[in-house]
Amino acid sequence: MRLLAAATGLWAAFLLLDLVASGRWWFWLIPGLAPPLLFLAVPVALLALGWTVPAPPVRRWLVPAVVALLVAGLPRTGLNWTALVPVPGPAAAGPALTVFSWNTEYWDTTDDPDAFYRFLHDRDADVYLLQEYLAWVRETHAEVDELDRIRREFPGHRVVVAGELVTLSRFPVLATPPVGPEVAPDAPWAETFTKRKVLRTDVDIHGRAVSFYNVHIPVQVDTRESVFGGAFYRVVREADAARREQFAALERDAAANPQPLLIAGDFNTSPAMGDLDPLRARFHDARSASGELYPGSWGGVLGTDWWRLDWAFTSRTVSVQRYAFVDALGMSDHRGQELRLALRP
Rank of each mutant, 00 (worst) to 15 (best):
residue 336 G to P: 06
residue 145 D to V: 08
residue 255 A to Y: 07
residue 313 F to N: 00
residue 239 A to Q: 07
residue 60 R to S: 14
residue 43 P to R: 06
residue 292 E to C: 03
residue 276 L to T: 02
residue 124 D to N: 12
residue 310 D to F: 06
residue 344 R to A: 15
residue 224 R to Q: 14
residue 124 D to S: 10
residue 96 A to G: 14
residue 209 A to F: 01
residue 253 D to A: 08
residue 257 N to E: 11
residue 232 F to C: 13
residue 42 V to S: 00
residue 68 A to Q: 09
residue 143 E to D: 11
residue 161 V to Q: 06
residue 276 L to N: 02
residue 177 P to M: 13
residue 174 L to P: 10
residue 61 W to V: 14
residue 186 D to S: 03
residue 50 G to R: 07
residue 113 P to A: 00
residue 164 E to L: 08
residue 87 V to S: 08
residue 10 L to Q: 07
residue 100 F to Q: 02
residue 89 G to D: 09
residue 304 T to L: 10
residue 218 P to M: 11
residue 29 L to C: 05
residue 176 T to V: 14
residue 124 D to G: 04
residue 165 L to H: 05
residue 72 A to M: 06
residue 198 V to K: 06
residue 193 F to Q: 11
residue 265 G to Q: 05
residue 215 V to E: 00
residue 90 P to Y: 01
residue 220 Q to E: 13
residue 284 H to N: 08
residue 294 Y to D: 04
residue 89 G to K: 05
residue 121 H to N: 09
residue 322 R to F: 04
residue 201 T to C: 04
residue 90 P to V: 06
residue 275 D to C: 13
residue 19 L to Q: 12
residue 160 V to S: 15
residue 282 R to W: 13
residue 14 F to Y: 13
residue 305 D to E: 13
residue 16 L to F: 13
residue 129 L to F: 01
residue 208 R to E: 08
residue 132 E to R: 07
residue 283 F to K: 08
residue 111 D to Q: 10
residue 325 F to I: 05
residue 2 R to C: 13
residue 316 R to E: 15
residue 166 V to N: 08
residue 142 A to S: 14
residue 181 P to L: 11
residue 107 W to N: 04
residue 181 P to D: 12
residue 290 S to V: 10
residue 37 L to H: 03
residue 126 D to G: 09
residue 193 F to M: 10
residue 90 P to K: 07
residue 89 G to F: 01
residue 304 T to W: 01
residue 234 R to D: 15
residue 254 A to H: 05
residue 66 V to G: 02
residue 328 A to I: 06
residue 201 T to R: 00
residue 204 D to M: 05
residue 288 S to E: 15
residue 226 S to F: 11
residue 190 A to G: 05
residue 167 T to S: 15
residue 233 Y to R: 11
residue 295 P to Q: 03
residue 21 A to H: 04
residue 195 K to E: 02
residue 314 T to C: 05
residue 84 L to H: 05
residue 86 P to I: 03
residue 172 P to K: 01
residue 19 L to V: 02
residue 52 T to Q: 10
residue 207 G to C: 06
residue 190 A to H: 13
residue 321 Q to H: 09
residue 270 S to N: 07
residue 323 Y to W: 11
residue 206 H to I: 03
residue 40 L to G: 08
residue 112 D to T: 09
residue 168 L to H: 04
residue 132 E to N: 04
residue 255 A to V: 06
residue 194 T to F: 09
residue 175 A to L: 01
residue 233 Y to I: 11
residue 302 L to D: 14
residue 87 V to T: 12
residue 6 A to D: 03
residue 343 L to W: 08
residue 94 G to R: 00
residue 134 L to S: 11
residue 143 E to I: 08
residue 252 R to C: 00
residue 146 E to G: 11
residue 60 R to E: 04
residue 69 L to I: 09
residue 341 L to W: 04
residue 143 E to F: 12
residue 70 L to K: 11
residue 262 L to M: 03
residue 16 L to V: 14
residue 292 E to P: 02
residue 272 A to R: 03
residue 7 A to F: 07
residue 303 G to E: 08
residue 121 H to M: 07
residue 120 L to S: 09
residue 233 Y to Q: 15
residue 234 R to F: 03
residue 66 V to K: 04
residue 319 S to G: 05
residue 178 P to N: 11
residue 285 D to T: 08
residue 223 T to H: 10
residue 116 F to T: 03
residue 80 N to V: 05
residue 323 Y to G: 15
residue 183 V to G: 07
residue 341 L to V: 12
residue 280 R to M: 12
residue 339 L to P: 00
residue 116 F to Q: 01
residue 187 A to F: 07
residue 124 D to V: 05
residue 168 L to N: 12
